[in-house]
Amino acid sequence: MADASVIVAQVIFGLIRGILLGCVFALIALGLNLVWGIAKVVNIAHGELVMLGAYGAYFLNLFLGFNPLLTAPIDAALGLAAGLGFYFAILHRELRGKEAITLQSEMVTLVATFGLSLAISNLANIAFTGNFVGIPFDAGSIEIGFLQIPLAGIYVAVLSVVIISLTHVLLNRTYLGNAIRAYSQDIPAAKLMGINPTAVAAIGTGLAFAVTMAGGAFLTTLFPTGINPYMGALYAPISYVIVVLGGPGRMWGSLVGGLTLGIVIDVGQIFLGVEIAYAVAFLLLIPVLLLRPEGILR
């Protein structure tokens, strides 16, 4: 194969791989986007939720033999419970009774989640050891011409888009979704409409944790040996970049941001190497924040 055609083939594979990976990144970032958009909490512990989701899948597979794809609903249920617990244990004290979420409240919750992040990662290091583990999951692959595409990547990408779509329907076509959106836009007006702000914020936080942990479970099928207590250190910044790219509070923005980042990383590493591709992906933040701080969708 000539050099030019090799590069073209590599780019095509990078694009496909980037799209598949980007869908999972989008799901993970959706969790951050929800809690950021609804409760105005910049969740520094977001990466640790991804890590817990991955470990959840790992243990369910290890002890009960679960297919990692099927662990996502269980992870999501655990995430929902953890989100409700997190809200009432930490956020509620700061947010209750507030007519608007002030900068001071944002700082308090930011520092609180930073502490939570450190606590979770260090406790995980003690409980799980720092060993890299993974799930021996081989769903096979399909060959399209010269390309060999792993089926696991396709499965998790499709499932990620389905979950993002369902979340969109929930937020736009249901009473609960309207209530959540109302709360995120104007708390006093939402209360006047009979919405219980505590319940809405708690459910929103739980929903955010649920999709994040489900995303963590999906990651285990893509990265067969990558589960470790500090894996969140990579996925948290990726999620921040995606949310900024897509625009805070915009569900479909997460998908656009995720796909953008996935493609930049996967195609970029063909020409630039892994380290520089990630650096370029993170550098995208700067022009976006300067030129389109509301995200690339608007």
Partner: peptide, 28 residues
């Protein structure tokens, strides 16, 4: 759906929701 305001949930209901949430979190 929210054009006709509904009465705020009674305090006891909110308390029960909170209690359930805490119990679930502890179980997790």
């Amino acid at each position: 759906q929210t054009s006709e305001p509904e009465p705020a949930p009674p305090a006891s209901k909110a308390g029960r929701t909170k209690l359930i949430a805490i119990v679930v979190a502890i179980v997790v």
